[in-house]
Amino acid sequence: MNTLDPRIKRLSLDPSTEVEKTNSHLITYEVFHQEKRGKHVTHVGIVHASNPEMALVMAKEVFGRRGKTTNLWVVKTSDVYTFGSDDEDMFETTPEKTFRDPAYYKVRDRIEKFQNKQKFEHEQRT
């Protein structure tokens, strides 16, 4: 075909070629990335691959090109179990459970009140 590009010219492409449609899929793997030793391994995306080894190779290319990486994990998408988004309401009241938070337990006021009372009683006695 007529092109200014020497590399394309060498391919001697025929633009009228009919391409056979691809209908079969490689399966997908969910990719998890660990940035540093000691850090959590977090989900970053997916790759298409025929087996776990190829999935790791692809994951390295897509998610480990720059910055720091200590490790990558891949898991077949079909092996991941999740709650449905309809079930999201089961977590709705969790933020209300403040008795699970350290900040819920405030004793300073009570201590001060107690100390004031002690002091007052001590002064009364003397």
Partner: peptide
């Protein structure tokens, strides 16, 4: 076209494709 044979060689027909999660 040029890459088709590679993809076909890699294909594992017993695996079932599912839509990715996120």
């Amino acid at each position: 076209e040029a890459g088709r044979w590679v993809r076909q060689a890699l294909m594992n027909p017993s695996e079932k494709y599912v839509v990715p999660l996120a």
